[in-house]
Amino acid sequence: MPDAPTELTSHPTPRCHALLPCAGTGSRAGTELPKQYQPIAGQPMVMHTLAALRGVARIELCVVVIAPEDAWWASQPVGAVLARCGGATRAESVFNGLQALMEQGAHADDWVLVHDAARCLVTPAQVDALIDACWNDAVGGLLALPLPDTLKAETKGRVATTVERAHKWLAQTPQMFRLGALRAALAATEGSGFAGITDEASAMELAGHHPLLVRGSAQNFKITYPEDFALAEAVIRSRP
């Protein structure tokens, strides 16, 4: 892992950058390649994701965090900075990716939007809406959807109880925070192997912050299971 800088410097005019953790194997997707490289509508999934982020004019740097041994990108048009510092977990990959962003000239006060490579249906308009909502916020926030379905808690494969769904949201990405604040929040859990960190917002929450919830779209789902690929392809082909 890269050494941490001795000081996080500020910048008078904050900028926006994107960070794409792309080092996972996607085992639940049941694919031979990591799922982010599987084709959807004629392109690898991650290329759809990158195209959406590149469609946002306010994003200056886009860093893709990949595994050190990843050879897939050797034959691909990149269109982003590749950082071979992917870790064993998403949180470790993001933490290392923030260091890579700083090495590319990003500052502590800059905004960083962390986005799942497997959320390839996000649109530039949705990303712009998140930036607009968070730009003047003290903490930052994330795209999310109010929970639409009845939620059950399970014990040994059977329903244990019905969970009250009011005030519960499904977290999505991008998740937008100041680079320095997010890095500090993740650093606080590095010693425990980033225990309990399931997304960037959870790291900020553990640090005592309350991220803003910005309503996203049901189409911005994370491709996880084999049947998700056909649904994503149908959505892409339905778009102009």
Rank of each mutant, 00 (worst) to 15 (best):
M1G: 14
P5Y: 03
T6A: 09
T6S: 06
L8N: 01
T9Y: 06
T13A: 14
C16P: 00
C16S: 09
A18L: 11
L19N: 03
L19Y: 09
P21M: 11
A23M: 02
G24E: 10
G24F: 05
G26I: 11
G26Y: 05
Y37S: 02
M45E: 13
M45A: 11
M47A: 08
V56N: 02
A57N: 13
A57G: 03
A57K: 14
C62R: 13
V63C: 09
V63Q: 05
I66C: 14
E69P: 00
W72C: 06
A74W: 00
S75L: 00
P77Q: 05
V78K: 09
V78M: 01
V78I: 06
A80P: 02
A83C: 03
C85Y: 05
C85A: 14
G87R: 07
G87S: 09
T89M: 04
T89L: 08
T89S: 14
R90I: 10
A91I: 07
E92S: 10
V94R: 07
F95D: 12
F95R: 10
G97M: 06
G97L: 03
L98R: 08
L101E: 04
M102T: 05
E103K: 10
G105N: 11
D109V: 06
D110M: 12
V112E: 02
V114N: 02
A118Y: 00
C120E: 04
L121K: 14
L121W: 03
T123V: 00
A125R: 14
A133T: 08
A133V: 11
L143S: 01
A144I: 07
A144F: 03
L147I: 00
P148A: 11
D149P: 00
L151D: 07
L151H: 06
K152A: 14
E154Y: 12
V159S: 04
V159C: 09
A160H: 15
V163L: 15
E164A: 15
R165W: 04
R165F: 00
K168A: 10
P174S: 05
Q175N: 01
Q175R: 02
F177E: 06
F177H: 10
L179Q: 03
L182H: 04
E190I: 01
G193D: 06
G193S: 09
G193T: 07
T198H: 13
T198K: 08
A201E: 07
A203M: 06
A203E: 05
M204E: 04
E205I: 13
P211E: 03
G216L: 03
S217L: 04
A218C: 02
Q219D: 15
N220P: 12
Y225R: 13
P226Q: 11
E227A: 14
D228I: 01
A234R: 15
I236K: 12
I236Y: 05
S238C: 07
S238R: 12
